[in-house]
Simulated scan of single mutants.
Amino acid sequence: MSRSGYYKWVKRKPTKTEKRLRHLINCIQKVYDEHKGIYGYRRITIYLNHYLNASVNHKCVYRLMRLLELKAVIRRKRYTYKPHKPQHIAENVLNREFQVDYKAMGVLLTDIT
Rank of each mutant, 00 (worst) to 15 (best):
R42V: 12
I44S: 05
I44G: 09
T45V: 05
T45G: 09
T45H: 03
T45K: 01
I46F: 12
I46S: 14
I46G: 10
Y47L: 03
L48Y: 04
L48Q: 07
L48G: 04
L48E: 06
H50M: 11
H50V: 14
Y51G: 00
L52K: 11
N53H: 09
N53C: 07
A54P: 00
A54E: 15
S55K: 11
S55G: 01
S55R: 13
V56F: 02
H58W: 09
H58Y: 15
H58L: 08
K59F: 02
K59C: 09
C60G: 00
C60D: 00
R63N: 13
L64T: 03
L64H: 02
R66P: 00
R66E: 08
L67R: 08
L67D: 11
E69H: 13
L70C: 03
L70Y: 01
L70G: 02
K71R: 08
I74S: 11
R75I: 13
R75K: 15
R76Q: 14
R76P: 06
K77I: 07
K77G: 13
Y79A: 09
T80S: 14
T80Q: 13
T80M: 10
Y81R: 11
K82Q: 13
K82H: 13
K85R: 12
P86T: 11
Q87N: 12
Q87M: 08
H88E: 10
I89W: 04
I89P: 00
A90V: 12
A90I: 11
A90Y: 11
E91N: 08
E91L: 05
N92L: 10
N92M: 11
V93A: 01
V93T: 08
V93Y: 07
V93R: 06
L94E: 02
R96L: 03
R96A: 09
E97S: 03
E97P: 00
E97G: 00
F98D: 09
D101V: 10
Y102N: 13
A104R: 08
A104M: 09
M105P: 00
G106V: 01
G106F: 07
V107S: 04
V107L: 12
L108K: 14
L108S: 12
L108P: 00
T110M: 14
T110N: 14
D111G: 08
